[in-house]
Amino acid sequence: MFSLLQEAATTAAGHTEEAAATAAAGAEAAESASGMPQLDFSTFPNQIFWLVITLGVLYWVLSRIALPRIAAVISDRQGAITGDLMAAEEFKQKAKEAEAAYDKALADARVEAGKIVAANRAEIQKELDAAIARADAEIAARTAESEKRLAEIRTSSAADAREVARDVTGELVRSFGGKADEAAVDQAVDSRMKGTVQ
């Protein structure tokens, strides 16, 4: 490998020597080809002329169009980002306020609901109490009435029983062939019934 490279190098050297020889023979273009084109001063004015034009055009384009535009875009973006961040902060604040308001409303509603429940309960209790009282009164009235009727029934039944007993006693006495003394029967019935009825 190394020998190959060496060979190539020597042929290259020979080649440049040959080129230099032909260049020395005459052709001006060949001369610049063998040396460094960078040191060919005859092309300097050309390069400098075109470079100055290029830089001039480039500077004009950049300073007038490109750079202001990019600067504007970047500052716009910065502004947009700052604005968005501020808006986001504002929305966050609003959300917090809304949450607080919601919580407050919830608590208020709870208290209100509690109040309403208590009020309803009291009202219902009152109605209930009234209904119970009314029912008690009715029950008492009905009880009294029933007792009265019972007493009536009792007294009427006692009278009926005396009547029946007197009739039966009178009939019995008659059927035994006796003569029923009304007063004696009444007395006997009354004395017998004392203690049993009442």
């Binding site: 005859s42 092309t43 004015p45 050309n46 390069q47 400098i48 002329f49 075109w50 470079l51 034009i53 290029t54 055009v57 480039l58 384009v61 950049l62 169009i65 490109a66 750079l67 535009r69 990019i70």
Partner: peptide, 27 residues
């Protein structure tokens, strides 16, 4: 021909391409 100061050369061409590329990118 010979390279005068005003002759359009490959320098001119490649400087023009450079400007065109920069304009394409930045403008």
């Amino acid at each position: 021909g010979p390279v005068h100061w005003y002759t359009p050369t490959n320098v001119t061409l490649w400087m023009f391409i450079t400007v065109a590329a920069i304009v394409a990118l930045l403008v």
